[in-house]
Amino acid sequence: MVYLSLTGVLFVLGLHGLFTARNLLRRLLSLNILTTSVFLLFVVMARLAEPLDNVPHAIVLTGIVITVSTTAVALALVVRIAGRMREEDVGAAADTRGDVE
């Protein structure tokens, strides 16, 4: 199957991006690609099974919702961290205790 190979390629691409990228957002994209490769593996399994297996479909649906949750949390963190970095760069009165409103 073409898609089985794609799973492996995406897995390696995702890992590579995660470890070599320095930008926080880009690491997040790599992680998402890695996750997609796992979902792809599940669905390929479902497709290869005889008859078509619906359990992996449900699993991947659950996984997609979880991934968007974790991505959203990560993005919110990245934005706060980047905001803080800029504040420190500018040398503005950096709030060292960090409870920034």
């Binding site: 898609y3 957002l25 994209l29 998402n32 997609t36 979902f39 669905v43 390929v44 479902a46 497709r47 078509l52 479909h57 991947v60 649906l61 997609i64 919702v65 991934t67 968007v68 991505t71 959203a72 993005l75 990245v78 934005v79 980047a82 905001g83």
Partner: peptide, 28 residues
Amino acid sequence: LEAPDIALAEAAIGAGATGALLLSALDR
């Protein structure tokens, strides 16, 4: 791969919601 449910969810969440999240974060 005969997984239409996932296709719907991927288009709406994977590309749609995640995309919007990413773009707005990028804007920031």
